[in-house]
């Protein structure tokens, strides 16, 4: 590897310091807390205790996975259409995707709750139109909806990015060689957009699995996700060690999920892989 010049090192140093202070050091703290008890003695008690939280953890990963798949199916066509349209339209659509992100996630989720309540805006409109009311809030569906709604821009952006850079002549060549639309999609577009899918998948899956605010507001707290349980340990139970142990295990599980995911998008050339 080429040796970095002093200038390069200097330019990189602010971020390295930042990362060390706010990423590496906190991670070390998490690891430390997860392996010690309240008095600072080494223990594996908390890590061993996570068996009791197995169902909550599986449920979180499952809901996060569903939300990610839904986001992918919604975002993929949109990103494709965006990348294909005129520069002006692209800008407008980009704006519309980004617009909700100008508002804070907590506010968006809170307003979602007010919309979806049994006495909320949607149901008031339905009542006014003499239509039967829908029960939406406090269900797993509402939580998944909240995740998709909040995190879908993170799926659209990488997909759009990769698709707008895609070499259109490859698609034309495939069409010239007699490939029908399905073949072109399966063998050209999909494999070329795989890196976008992979980063979109990560960027939606990870925050969805570890979310706590969305499940609290839209799930009504009657079923907990792992994020809620971790938050509770830090916020009110004053059990930092258990919270840290749960976070560690969650991190490991997410890394395993990402590794499985990367098997599909890895180095080699092969196509025709659907998730």
């Amino acid at each position: 590897m080429k040796k970095r010049s002093l200038g390069e090192k200097l330019v990189a140093s602010p971020y390295i310091v930042w990362a060390a202070m706010f990423i590496i050091v906190p991670l070390i703290f998490v690891a430390y807390y997860s392996l010690t008890d309240a008095n600072g003695n080494f223990t594996l008690e908390y890590i061993a205790d996570i068996g009791r939280y197995k169902d909550v953890m599986l449920n979180s990963i499952w809901l996060g996975f569903i939300a990610t798949v839904i986001s992918l199916f919604l975002a993929y066509p949109l990103a494709y259409i965006m990348a294909r349209s005129k520069a002006n339209t692209q800008r407008t659509m980009m704006m519309l995707v980004m617009l909700p992100m100008w508002m804070n996630l907590l506010i968006r989720t809170y307003s979602m709750m007010i919309l979806m309540q049994d006495t909320g805006v949607i149901n008031s409109v339905l009542t006014a139109l003499n239509l039967p009311n829908l029960h939406m809030i406090n269900t797993q569906g509402a939580v998944v909806f909240g995740m998709v709604y909040n995190y879908i821009p993170y799926m659209i952006l990488p997909l759009y990015n990769i698709m707008s850079k895609m070499d259109h002549s490859l698609i034309e060549a495939a069409e010239d060689l007699g490939g029908n639309k399905v073949t072109v999609f399966k063998d050209i577009i999909l494999p070329l957009s795989m890196p976008g899918i992979a980063s979109g998948f990560t960027m939606v899956f990870v925050p969805s699995v570890s979310t706590f605010y969305i499940s609290k507001k839209l799930g009504g707290n009657t079923f907990s996700l792992i994020g809620d349980v971790i938050e509770m340990q830090f916020k009110s139970s004053n059990n930092y060690n258990l919270g840290a142990a749960l976070s560690m295990v969650l991190m490991v599980l997410i890394i395993i999920c990402m590794m499985v995911m990367n098997r599909f998008t890895g180095d080699d050339d092969d196509g025709g892989v659907l998730i």
């Binding site: 009791r52 939280y53 079923f223 809620d228 349980v229 509770m232 139970s237």
Partner: peptide, 9 residues
């Protein structure tokens, strides 16, 4: 309290 809160269907 933890057990109550994580109890699910």
């Amino acid at each position: 309290w933890n057990e109550i809160r994580i109890y699910g269907s």
